[in-house]
């Protein structure tokens, strides 16, 4: 049967697991999609504001913010501080051994602009490269659900970030962790992390690391068990994703950032403005599963109206950068056919 593309988003019948209803012309996600209304968004923003006001000012920081230095997180930090100027924020940038110099400069610049503390979370480069290589070489280490959300390399990287940000929040007694995920990446705006869930997520990630052949005995990537024990049950952190409630327009975001002094990336990657490993990770994922790891994310943005279908299709079909792929493959000591 010839390829059918969803009439509403960009998912097509060639993607394993995607079915297009021939009658409606829609994929199963668009068929079951109920958009969040502006009233609902307003309601969630009200809840977030109340929570921030109520719980801030009690710990060393109010918010641990995941800052990559890319456009979304840079804008997210700026907007968060603009909307809630009373917040005392620690922005954490994870140096995954592949972040660009521009991303580091941008992250520091954004912290200066908004007046928040900056912390670069570093790890041994060899350990990171070994882990990413094992993620690239593995198949089926992550759930099917995860495979559609991101590449195996990105799933490993983002899981490390999540584990370590929760750890930072516990250490600094910060009541909030904020990620600048878009509506396509994280549809839930408020996640109340409970101790049992934190422990369970840690154990799931430990098993996923074992699946790719990594035994993290030193808890370099995992949330340290000793730190979990120190959690006060009444003050477990809440994870917030406000970007999925704010208006999202890529061009306007970049425009705003450039006006602020943020430097556009010099890397030629349509899906990342900060990570030099991303193109390799995408190619590796496509080779293994025949799935573009950004397809679902882009489809979510198109479905919610934050991106036009034409823009989405163009982004999805843009060729991956060969020089970036080669550079990352060399650093990981891998061949990529």
């Amino acid at each position: 049967m010839s390829k059918l593309t969803c009439k509403k988003c960009i998912l097509d019948s060639d993607i394993p697991g995607i079915t297009i209803n021939e009658e409606s012309g829609l994929c199963q996600f668009c068929e079951n999609y109920t958009p969040m209304s502006s009233e609902e968004k307003k309601k969630y923003l009200g809840i977030i504001e109340d929570l921030l006001k109520e719980r801030s000012g009690k710990g060393e920081y109010d918010v641990i913010f995941a800052l990559s230095g890319g456009k979304d997180s840079s804008y997210g930090l700026y907007k968060l501080k603009k909307e809630y100027p009373f917040l005392n924020i620690l922005a954490v940038q994870f140096d995954n051994a592949f972040i660009s110099d521009t991303a580091v400069a941008n992250a520091k610049k954004m912290c200066e602009i908004v007046g928040c503390d900056y912390f670069k979370l570093t790890m041994e480069e060899k350990l990171l490269c070994d882990t990413f290589r094992k993620a690239a070489e593995s198949t089926n280490a992550y759930s099917k659900f995860a495979r559609y959300r991101a590449s195996d390399i990105c799933n490993t990287c983002i899981s490390i970030i999540k584990q370590k940000l929760v750890e930072q929040a516990i250490i600094h007694k910060a009541p909030f962790i904020v990620f600048a995920f878009t509506s396509g990446q994280a549809p839930n705006p408020i996640i109340d992390l409970q101790v049992n869930f934190i422990k369970w997520s840690r154990d799931i990630f430990e098993k996923q690391l074992q699946n790719i052949g990594v035994d993290d005995k030193d808890e370099s990537f995992l949330l340290k068990n000793e730190i979990i024990k120190s959690i006060n049950k009444d003050t477990t952190p809440i994870m917030l994703h406000p970007m999925c409630l704010w208006d999202y327009n890529e061009d306007k975001i970049v425009e705003t950032l450039i006006d602020l002094g943020w430097m556009p990336p010099k890397i030629n990657d349509s899906n990342s403005t900060n990570c030099l490993l991303n193109a390799f990770a995408c190619q590796n994922h496509i080779n293994k599963y025949d799935i573009h790891p950004y397809a679902f994310d882009i489809a979510g943005l198109v479905r919610s109206g934050d991106m036009t279908r034409e823009e989405g299709l163009e982004k999805l079909h843009k060729e991956l950068s060969e020089p970036l792929i080669e550079m990352a493959a060399k650093k990981l000591e891998m061949d990529l056919e």
Binding site: K144, F145, A146, Y148, A186, I204, F205, K207
Partner: peptide
């Protein structure tokens, strides 16, 4: 979660260990 309709899942099978779902 893109669980295939043909996937054999017993009532007591672990959803995370079977790779059907993860923490997110």
């Amino acid at each position: 979660s893109f669980m295939d309709s043909g996937t054999q899942l017993n009532d007591d099978d672990s959803l995370t260990m079977k790779g059907i779902i993860d923490s997110i």
